[in-house]
Computed example of a mutant assay.
Amino acid sequence: MEDLPMTAGLLLAAGAGRRYGRPKALVELAGEPLVRRGVRLLGDGGCTPVHVVLGAGADEVPDLPGAVPVHHDRWPEGLGSSLCRGLASLPADVPAAVVVLVDQPLLSPVAIRRVRAAYAGGALVAVATYAGRPGHPVLLGRGSWPLLDSYAIGDRGARDLLRDRPDLVVEVPCDDVGAPLDVDTPADLLRLVSDG
């Protein structure tokens, strides 16, 4: 099928969605919960295994065929702790992980494959860019994971690492395949539906 090295998929879906009014993992777009859409995105992009970090509303999350749910009791500490929890949950033989956020439903499997191809080409960290700005997906090779201990804090994931260590990062243009738009409020979702 494709000749790319194995990379795991990591979907961060633990937040309470305070601005939305409920956990965004449970929000539906075209009749599909965003958490299932994210699992499908990673699977279609060739990631295996796929782990999903769950926190707020975890008991209400539907079955996730093709994914391993990772319950994170410390999710209120923010995105950084969810990222570290998710990476720690992956099997020891996983050399890299592609990270996506549950509230970005317009990401493309093509972008997933592009950052995986950058990893196959030697990148330790690969980030999709849109109009020259970094977004998701982000691929993190295992060698970069220890660096996150001092970066993935509070609501910060890998963003500051990407900024501070450009020597580790390969940027992968993905303007032509999807968009990194966040669904933070019900109005954002309505815009996606009306624009789609």
Rank of each mutant, 00 (worst) to 15 (best):
55 G>L: 04
177 V>D: 13
20 Y>M: 10
180 P>Q: 13
103 D>V: 05
128 A>K: 03
162 L>V: 10
173 P>F: 12
33 P>K: 03
117 A>P: 05
151 Y>R: 01
42 L>W: 03
181 L>K: 04
52 V>K: 02
72 H>R: 00
40 R>L: 05
26 L>N: 07
181 L>Y: 09
106 L>P: 03
80 G>K: 01
127 V>Q: 08
125 V>H: 11
67 A>L: 10
48 T>M: 14
15 G>A: 11
31 G>A: 08
120 A>T: 10
166 P>A: 04
135 G>F: 09
22 R>P: 02
103 D>F: 06
133 R>Q: 09
149 D>C: 10
93 D>F: 10
13 A>H: 00
196 G>D: 11
89 S>Q: 04
1 M>K: 12
104 Q>H: 05
133 R>F: 08
191 R>T: 15
137 P>W: 02
76 P>I: 09
40 R>Q: 12
191 R>K: 14
35 V>W: 11
117 A>K: 10
180 P>G: 13
158 A>R: 01
94 V>L: 05
8 A>Q: 02
62 P>E: 05
169 V>T: 13
106 L>G: 05
55 G>F: 08
124 L>G: 13
180 P>S: 13
12 L>A: 03
150 S>G: 10
48 T>V: 12
33 P>E: 03
98 V>Y: 13
120 A>H: 04
167 D>F: 06
28 E>D: 10
83 L>C: 13
97 A>Y: 01
137 P>F: 06
119 Y>K: 02
115 V>G: 05
54 L>N: 08
137 P>V: 03
155 D>S: 08
119 Y>P: 04
74 R>Q: 15
30 A>K: 06
132 G>H: 07
3 D>L: 10
195 D>H: 13
31 G>W: 02
127 V>S: 13
151 Y>F: 09
160 D>P: 00
69 P>A: 06
114 R>V: 08
43 G>S: 15
46 G>A: 06
104 Q>L: 11
29 L>F: 11
164 D>Y: 06
75 W>N: 09
83 L>Q: 10
193 V>R: 08
102 V>A: 07
53 V>W: 05
41 L>W: 00
56 A>S: 14
181 L>E: 12
31 G>I: 03
194 S>E: 15
136 H>D: 01
172 V>G: 08
115 V>P: 11
121 G>D: 14
127 V>R: 00
29 L>K: 02
78 G>M: 00
68 V>G: 11
146 P>G: 10
166 P>Y: 07
163 R>N: 09
74 R>W: 13
90 L>C: 11
120 A>M: 06
104 Q>T: 14
157 G>T: 12
15 G>K: 05
31 G>V: 04
97 A>K: 00
116 R>H: 10
61 V>N: 05
189 L>D: 00
108 S>P: 00
67 A>T: 03
180 P>H: 12
76 P>V: 06
5 P>E: 04
142 R>E: 09
181 L>A: 13
153 I>L: 14
89 S>P: 12
82 S>L: 08
156 R>C: 14
32 E>V: 14
122 G>K: 07
171 E>G: 13
84 C>P: 00
144 S>E: 06
141 G>W: 06
20 Y>R: 00
